[in-house]
Design a protein around this nucleic acid. Sequence first.
DNA 1: CGGTACTTTGATATTCATCAACTCCCGTGG
DNA 2: CCACGGGAGTTGATGAATATCAAAGTACCG
Lengths: 235, 235
Amino acid sequence: MLPTQCFHDVDQSATCCSFGPCAHEKPATIMDQVPRVTTRELRAKEHIFFEGDHKTHVYLVESGAVSIYKVLVDGSRQIIDFALPGDVIGLGSNSEHINSAQSTVATRLQRVSFDVLQRQAQKNPQLAMQLYAALSEELAAARDLLVTVGQRSASQRVVAFLLALSRRNRRYGKDPSDIVLPMTRSDIADFLGLTIETVSRTFSSLKSKGLIVLGRNAQVDLTDLEALERLCAEQ
Amino acid sequence: MLPTQCFHDVDQSATCCSFGPCAHEKPATIMDQVPRVTTRELRAKEHIFFEGDHKTHVYLVESGAVSIYKVLVDGSRQIIDFALPGDVIGLGSNSEHINSAQSTVATRLQRVSFDVLQRQAQKNPQLAMQLYAALSEELAAARDLLVTVGQRSASQRVVAFLLALSRRNRRYGKDPSDIVLPMTRSDIADFLGLTIETVSRTFSSLKSKGLIVLGRNAQVDLTDLEALERLCAEQ
DNA sequence: CGGTACTTTGATATTCATCAACTCCCGTGG
DNA sequence: CCACGGGAGTTGATGAATATCAAAGTACCG
């Protein structure tokens, strides 16, 4: 097992918020098995690749954050996943990218050649199975997000999003009630299938209820995790 | 490449309806590489497995239709995919199912042992890569549905759904303007993140506009494919 | 400092969910 | 053969949630 662009945790049992604990600990196993790893630095809002581009590399996020998204003809955008430090971008056997990727903040990436990775996988069944497991997690994450967007109210979606970041913090040994949002309201809105205004209003509402405190620098304090969990599950 | 539960087509370029042509033709390559294939017959609305169940088999849909879904604590259901004839259910490296599966109509399945398949894949890199490609398609399908549910209006979702079935027909050499819906309005609603009533009203509205004709036996005639495509893309 | 991008807040409009009643279809049993 | 019953589908009336439009406020970067 190895980390993927599993931004929100994959919940096997669909309790609560459809986000749950994600069990991968080993960081970047894939990258260790392939030679010639190079790094790339990005400022905020730089593109890594576009949908339809020929797939040249697979990337590991070292720091920062990347949005994986699709755009419709009318220009509206659905962010499919946020790739955070430790997550891998660009897996899948297609020779072309099926979505676009853009840094949401300043970001540092490691990259390996897609072809080299594919060839290694052909020779090494264990690597192939690792790739398979990684993709399997991405699939679970995409489906969890689908459940959230398809079935939950605006405030439940936002809370689910915050709790997913909280759980990620816990997984990495950081404070689960003190999270950072490395993306704009607009990014969050496009991730949750809402508008900027609705996301902003929901934050304000949670703040006025004393469930969160909005700090400087995109910092958010989750002052009542239990109440948030309840909010996310209820109805 | 091999077929998966890619109900709607995977559109590489996110044109129109986020559903597009899906290029797999070889049916059931996986099943041919594993011994002891058995079959199972189901009446409508029988369960194949539940979320959390130990994964014993991987299934190929021979006839009928299967809904893959998750339920939330409040009882609401999100159908994640419809598996139709030729599609495979139960892939992924988890030892437990991460969603439930239920026939929507009378259905016949082929099944192979999950463990046997895993072991074969360990030994046979080509099979492993096939599984990888299959999962890759499932992921693309889940993401396309996410885009539809997250960004489109009720009528656009319904039309996208109809057009996906139409394209599937075309791919299998059948009439793309004469489709069958092997599921209830309730299933469609839970797939598209809508209510039964909204789905029904949308069908009625499309009918009154002369874009579709509702026939007997869940048959739907798409009398103006171009107008439907336009409806799905516009705004 | 000054400008730009991002965020918040308010007023209004629209879409879709909800609640409720009714119809249709099909199978079952009297 | 017809009556009954239940599941599925349709249609209408209403309300709530969220999008849209508009404007002001705030932080950040040169």
